Computed example of a mutant assay.
Amino acid sequence: MKRICTICARGGSKGVPGKNMRLLAGKPLLAHSIEQARACGLFDVVAVSSDDAAILAAATAYGADLAITRPHELATDTAAKLPVIRHAVETAEARCGLRFDTMVDLDATSPLRSVEDIVNAVRLLEEEGAGNVITGMPARRSPYFNLVERDAAGRVGLAKTLATPVFRRQDAPACFDMNASIYAWRRAVLFEAPGLFNADTRLYEMPEERSIDIDSEVDFLLVELLINRRHAQGQA
């Protein structure tokens, strides 16, 4: 069983300029995900994909096995992530002479995950027969109770309805917010399936305090607060 971890870190960012190289607890944001990948001991190769030379240099400095230069067409604001991951895996296989069975992508902007989260997501993929695994946290809003849609005429209604109406949020079907932290695939699913959701996509649940994805300055401040609190409490 051969496994690769990819970390995709583009140079451009609109919400938080330069966020992948911004210091968090004394090291670039990118470094936290590299160190987590190394610490879990699962991966034959940890590869960072970027269009930015400084990010690729930092990736090598903080322990990545491969620094992969991303093609321009995969580094635009509108580029989808799946082709980026496929490119990174194919490039790593060509360089290392390996064929990977399990592919895991860690989002550099979600540094609050634990090493155990990575291990458990991979275990769900490999031991439970899943095609691919995503991560998420319990949703703050429910489409069956307090998440609404507005139609073209301006009328508002629940996003989803049930045959029997729900009067308490606790009685609604469990829903989850994707937290963009960990993605795991079997090889065939990554390269042959058309999208993220497939016939056997599973979800690994994480708590809210490990699920913040940095997409704004407020997100960065929250993550910084939580990281500093962990360090103050002697946690990794």
Rank of each mutant, 00 (worst) to 15 (best):
R3T: 12
C5R: 06
T6K: 02
G11N: 08
G12R: 12
G18V: 09
K19G: 01
L23Q: 15
K27C: 01
P28I: 10
H32E: 04
H32P: 08
H32Y: 06
S33Y: 02
E35W: 07
Q36S: 13
A37I: 09
S50T: 09
A53N: 02
A53P: 14
A58Y: 04
T69C: 09
T69P: 00
H72A: 15
T78P: 00
P83V: 01
R99T: 14
F100N: 07
M103R: 08
V104P: 06
A108L: 03
T109C: 03
V115T: 13
D117Q: 03
D117Y: 03
N120A: 08
L124Q: 11
E126C: 11
G129L: 11
T135I: 01
G136E: 01
P138C: 07
Y144G: 03
F145D: 07
N146Q: 10
V148W: 07
V148C: 13
T161V: 14
P165S: 10
D171M: 12
P173C: 05
P173N: 04
R186V: 00
G195A: 11
D200S: 13
Y204P: 01
M206D: 00
E209S: 14
I212V: 15
D215L: 12
E217V: 11
D219Y: 02
E224T: 11
N228S: 13
H231K: 11
